[in-house]
Design a protein around this nucleic acid. Structure first.
Lengths: 246, 246
DNA sequence: GCAAAAGTGTTTCCGGTACACCCATGG
DNA sequence: CCATGGGTGTACCGGAAACACTTTTGC
């Protein structure tokens, strides 16, 4: 019975993936076929989500969903809060879909939103399922259920927290150049930053360590690689933040 | 059936009340009496909370709980997130209490935390129930369930948000002096602030308007009263924040 | 040798901070 | 007339912002 699913509580994950160019979100295709004709009734996209197990912690459920979909453990996860509008599943397509899956469409389900951060190149997702794909953030249209609301909340939170915390490093590979870090900030915050000022500020951070290693295979002067040191971050604690990387 | 309670989803509210001296939290006494002897089995404190109705929005549930307990509508409410540790109700006293109330103690309940802000003098709470009282934040010990965790999260969030948003005004009456506002900030942030610098910054805020009215009945030079203008705040939007009232 | 990004210092300006005295009221 | 908090201005300092040229690599 440990694995019995809870009918009223689900978890939805906004999975952000950075590819050195733009922010992407991993979405799942939801296509309903007419049983007799085999024609497509509708086809749209959802966040990665599922019901929790009866005795499962919410964060564990989120990790499980991420693992099932992507084969990755230990991603950075942040809780966004609960989404409990009684009408959140009452869209026409949503009702058809829930019925198709064998849920009672009239059941109340509250969902807990999370977001995960990863780097698309480093964390190669094994897409077990052809219906799961990366979508550039800027090209995401209407999603199923209340998932646009959850996505919006995730993005809002990410934009605030990336200024002052170590979230940025979760979106980069272990080793990265300062320019890559700067580009990431520019993409997330939606504005360009001055290179020299950016570097001045960043080089003050004790938790950012320069490696004895340079970029390779680039058609220009190779940059030094850097890494984030969680140990030093914990050590220097609150002094050592991005504070005002506007 | 509209009023049927949902067995698995509850809402808990951290109700902060400011009394011009300190921050208080409204707590509910929970006393279990032995049925035969009438002796006290245990007695402790909980946040204001209850299960949600089957078709009730989470925020509506929080407002209802606040209203039932205090007779107040339209308090400022902020969601903190969901608390879903499977063990959150498994304390010894918690199990006794749930059993006494007629719940199945083994049922999984996830709770959504909120916090509310009010001014103790202005918003005179009609304490319908003698077991509900204000407790100074600094004197709160161990609470029932996982309520210390929820309180901690609420306080953390309040301390962050009060620096940059209009939360402070929710803890004051409609008209207040700058000194009262400063005192509030000092209490919440836990540090003293320089009077002149504080006023310089505050007087820049377009959403803070001086009234043609002074303090009365004080044994010193009376101060001007001020009010927060939601309209101007919305108008000037993001420029007009407390930004760095450290 | 050319394209492309890496890397580097200085000046300016604004905002934060520190700090001390006179004023109006109630008792 | 005294106690109490209200109200005000200035000088200094540090950090943010603006800004342009040289270097190293792959092709």
């Amino acid at each position: 019975m440990e694995q019995a699913i809870h009918p009223n509580i689900s978890v939805d994950c906004v999975i952000f993936g950075y590819d050195f160019e733009k922010l992407n979100v991993l979405l799942v295709e939801r296509t309903l076929l007419d049983e007799s004709s085999g024609k497509v009734v509708f086809s749209d996209l959802t966040l990665a989500g599922n019901h929790v197990f009866v005795n499962e912690d919410l964060k564990d459920a989120a990790h499980r969903i991420l693992f099932d979909l992507t084969g990755i453990k230990d991603l950075y996860l942040e809780q966004l809060g609960a989404f409990g509008d009684p009408e959140r599943l009452s869209g026409h397509n949503d009702q058809l879909w829930l019925n198709y899956l064998g849920y009672k469409p009239e059941d109340r389900v509250i969902t807990v939103g999370f977001y995960a951060l990863l780097n698309c190149e480093q964390v190669k997702i094994v897409l077990k399922d052809r219906t799961v794909k990366w979508y550039p953030l800027t090209e995401i249209g209407q999603l199923a259920y209340d998932h646009n609301r959850i996505l919006e909340a995730a993005l809002h939170d990410l934009r605030i927290k990336i200024r002052t915390a170590h979230l940025a490093f979760e979106l980069l590979p272990e080793k990265f150049t300062l320019s890559q870090l700067q580009k990431l900030m520019e993409v997330v915050l939606g504005k360009t930053l001055d290179k020299r000022n950016f570097r001045k500020r960043l080089l003050k951070l004790k938790s950012l360590v320069q490696l004895d290693e340079k970029q390779k295979g680039v058609a220009h002067k190779p940059g030094y690689l850097y890494a984030f040191s969680k140990e030093k971050y914990d050590l220097y604690d609150d002094q050592d933040t991005f504070s005002v990387i506007m």
